[in-house]
Nucleic acid binder design. Structure first.
Lengths: 109, 109
DNA sequence: ACAAACCAGTTTGTATTGCAAACCTTTTGC
DNA sequence: GCAAAAGGTTTGCAATACAAACTGGTTTGT
């Protein structure tokens, strides 16, 4: 066991940090609804810089959460992004546990 | 401007990373409800190691989000943790924007 | 009375990140 | 033909997050 006390098994203790990162939450939530888009569209939606977006995508790809499809649109390269089933599940699981956690947090309105 | 495209002003783009970190979300959410407790109780609740908890608390203290009160319980030292008004607000704001963001994410049940 | 074990944390070291600036390759404007 | 732009990727660095090692004191065992 990695912890030296018994924890009360908070849902947040086990979050997938790969998904939890705000930039990636943004990316995944876009793909979750639109299912596929290209690099530039994603950049506009998220407001990330190219470099930043590029490396987050690489991470998501390594994790098997998004598929990065490179094709040519006429003569210019184009990068298509698509959520994999595994990515869809990871995101949905994450959101579900966030929701669940938040149900335990009292509202302030 | 830091971004090179106009973003669609996603609520998640501006999250307070200090609050967003899972370990700290755990800590803050505990304090949000119970308002004050000691170090060991917090360790049990969160399941964090001492070192880890200690440094997260230091960060929260630096940010002015929690107050760390050291006192003696008889002969042994004791560390009391308490949410500051500013911490209460930061947490509640964060949760509110999470909630808002999640309202845009379709359910999967 | 002395040492070993324990308690309540803090500091340190390391490995991983998140980020933007610099870079690369192709393409378009003139 | 050549400069600027499009569409990304790689690099460099500052900021984490984490557990192991440490600190300063207290209690227990003998």
């Amino acid at each position: 066991m990695a912890r030296n006390h018994e924890s009360s098994a908070q849902p947040l203790g086990n979050v997938d940090r790969l998904v939890h990162e705000p930039a990636r939450l943004l990316i995944l939530s876009q793909l979750y609804v639109i299912d596929a888009c290209d690099f530039l569209f994603m950049q506009k939606q998220t407001g990330l810089t190219k470099g930043n977006l590029s490396s987050h995508l690489a991470k998501l790809e390594d994790a098997g959460y998004v598929e990065i499809i490179k094709e040519f649109e006429g003569k210019r390269p184009r990068t298509l992004l698509q959520l994999t089933p595994s990515g869809r599940e990871a995101f949905s699981t994450h959101v579900a546990s966030l929701r669940q956690w938040m149900d335990g947090v009292p509202h302030s309105n």
